[in-house]
Design a protein around this nucleic acid. Sequence first.
DNA 1: TGAATACGAGTTGTATACATTTTGCAAGAT
DNA 2: ATCTTGCAAAATGTATACAACTCGTATTCA
Lengths: 244, 244
Amino acid sequence: MSEKPDRAMQSQRALMGVRDLVISGEIRGGVRLSEVALAEKLGISRTPLRAALARLEQEGLVEAIPSGGYAVRSFTREDVIDAIELRGVLEGTALRLAAERGVSPARLGELHRLLVELDHAQQGEVEAMDFDRYVELNATFHEKLWGLASETIRREIERITSRPFASPSAFLHKQADVMAFRRTLYGAQAQHKAMVSAIELREGARAEALAREHARLARQNLEFVLDEDRSLIRRVPALSLVVG
Amino acid sequence: MSEKPDRAMQSQRALMGVRDLVISGEIRGGVRLSEVALAEKLGISRTPLRAALARLEQEGLVEAIPSGGYAVRSFTREDVIDAIELRGVLEGTALRLAAERGVSPARLGELHRLLVELDHAQQGEVEAMDFDRYVELNATFHEKLWGLASETIRREIERITSRPFASPSAFLHKQADVMAFRRTLYGAQAQHKAMVSAIELREGARAEALAREHARLARQNLEFVLDEDRSLIRRVPALSLVVG
DNA sequence: TGAATACGAGTTGTATACATTTTGCAAGAT
DNA sequence: ATCTTGCAAAATGTATACAACTCGTATTCA
């Protein structure tokens, strides 16, 4: 994660700082980002700040204003749904190609080990589940899956999942330990196992379909929050960017 | 295409200038891009140049050097194949969602009109085909297809196709009027018609599969150039970036 | 009262200066 | 001859200066 230790320290600080500021919802969507104010707030000059803003525009978190400068982007429900769908499509492609082209036993071993640990984390009753550990392991598992893909595809996955609400952990943030989400984890874990099995058996189409359906669990969670229990919106940090 | 007429004139010049320089193959892969030299060559200062380089890094045409600065990226055969595959996957998703969600008659009308024009461009014998016009229309047709998708997905398509060898016109550049490529256009046009038909009939899975197979025509052309007639490499500008 | 306008504070885009780091090269030691 | 070391030139990352432009406000005129 630390690409450049101190060769571009200020740029890194700018990137993280602005990203946090946007994701935390401290600035509402559509609001213009004043460069001087931001630079002062972050204790850097405008140059690395502008570099960070340009990058965040590519990531889709901010958008360029026609008359100049950037504004925090706001996302509609459809934007979020499409981002999740796209993650499913991309992860599906990663898994399909991995299945078609073959995966080394070493990597399959790592995946199996993670599956065992995930099983362990959700042993027993729902209330007793080690939720925090499951969240961590789930993130690691998905990253390992992405690692099966070529760089070209991995880059796109990482870009789309840089939008916080499209990440596999979007509704599994540690702070958001919601019982409704916990229950979805049993089905999710079954899909995890099926995905690894499909890759092992070189069943590309099945692996792809599973990855897509797996991502749609996130969509279900999204729709539950937006339609059934909007009080949860503030407990899922990623949703502060969603309007409507 | 002209996003900012003159609000960021120098940045635009930098972006186009460097992109052309890289795509033309004037600078070989792996070579470091000297910022001062480039800025002088383009008649701008380093600031907008660096903005352009940062953006081209996101597009994947240049890569950051660990010790600082950027270098022209070089692509392996596998990189190109995966980029083409990814375009197929993304276009397929665009078409599937369009089919599932429905498309306005006006847009379907535009597509049908383009199909007729494409038919007209390839009337008669292979040698008599109006190749240049077909190339133009083909690009327009694909852009119209992308327009069916939501912004989230359209952005990703446009990013991946910004790599010249992954664009739908990669092997159809006007300068590269190769008879072997001409012949593939008949099959391509049949796929065009099938794709529109599938969207119209709300057959999402079929539309998706067709888009993927359609992209694989580009892969066939790529493999023909690399394996059968390498003399064509220099006639397909996009391939100057490919090593191996 | 309302609309047009002129003005000024504030903002962005670009150029340039500067300090730190990297790199290529030459001299010297083994 | 090869590897190490030292150094100077060059390159990058950052800060800052500056001009053009935007936007909000208050004033003026109808």
